[in-house]
Amino acid sequence: MIEVKNLYKSYDGEFVLNDVSARFEQGKCNLIIGRSGSGKTVLLKSIAGLLEVDEGEIWYNDHKFSHLDTNAKQHIRKEMGVLFQGAALFDSLTVEENVLFPLDMLTSQNKKEKLDRINFCLERVKVSGSNSLYPAELSGGMRKRVAIARAIALNPRYLLCDEPNSGLDPETGIVIDNLIRELTEEFNMTTIVNSHDMNSVLEIGDKIIFIYQGCKCWEGTRQEILQTNNEALNNFVFATNMAKQIKNQ
C-alpha cells in the first residue's frame, strides 16, 4: 500500500501538485490519469522520492517515506521498481547487463543465481534471446519490456510506471499494460501507472485517479468512469466529438 497525503509542489510559484491525497492498494493496478502537463510525472517522481515535495506526506505501508533520511530511503527504494517514460535503459549496457545491474549492485548472489534470475525476468516479459543486444537495437515495445524486466529483477513490492505505453501502437500498448497487470497480480505488488491513454484505463484500471491541473479531481473505478458527471473528466474520457455524441445518446 502506498498513500500520499496533501502533497503540494510548485515550480516558480506555480502549483504543479495542489493538495493531492490518494491511497494506492496492494495487488491492484492504480491508475493516475490526466492530460499532458497535468502533473502526473511530477506526482509519480515525488512518490518515488526523485523530487522533493514542498509539503505533504508519502507513506509506504507504515513507513513515512517522505521524512526518512537518505539511508532509510535507500532501504525502501530497494523494494521499488520504476518504469520510466522513455524506458531509461542504460545504453552502454546490453539487455542482459541492464537486468543484471540491480542484481550486481544490490545483491550478493553468485553468477549462476544472477543469470537464472535475468533469464527468468526476460522470459517473463517475453524478450528471451536478445540478451546481447544493446538498447539502441531494440524496438520501442521491447525496450519497455526490458525496462520492466529490470524493474522486477529484485522482486519489488512496489511498481511505479510512467506512461508505459506512450510511443507505442495501441496493440503493443495494451500488451504492455496487460503485462503490468499480470505481474501486479502474480507478485502482489502495489502498482501505480501513469497514463493519458483511455485504452489502458479501460483495460487495467482497478482504481483510477484523475489529475486535473495539479489537483485530484476525481477517483473511482473503470466502471464508474464512463458514467461520471465530472465535466473535466468527461472532456478527457470522451475527447472526440464522436465519443461525446455516443455518450449523450
Binding site: 517522481k45 526523485l50 535507500q74 532501504h75 527504494r77 530497494k78 521499488m80 520504476v82 531509461a88 540491480p102
Partner: peptide, 16 residues
C-alpha cells in the same frame, strides 16, 4: 544524456 533520458533517475530509484 543519462540525466535527460532518466537513466540517472533509474539508478537513484534503485537505491544506488
Amino acid at each position: 544524456m543519462m540525466r535527460v533520458t532518466e537513466q540517472i533517475d533509474a539508478m537513484e530509484v534503485m537505491g544506488i
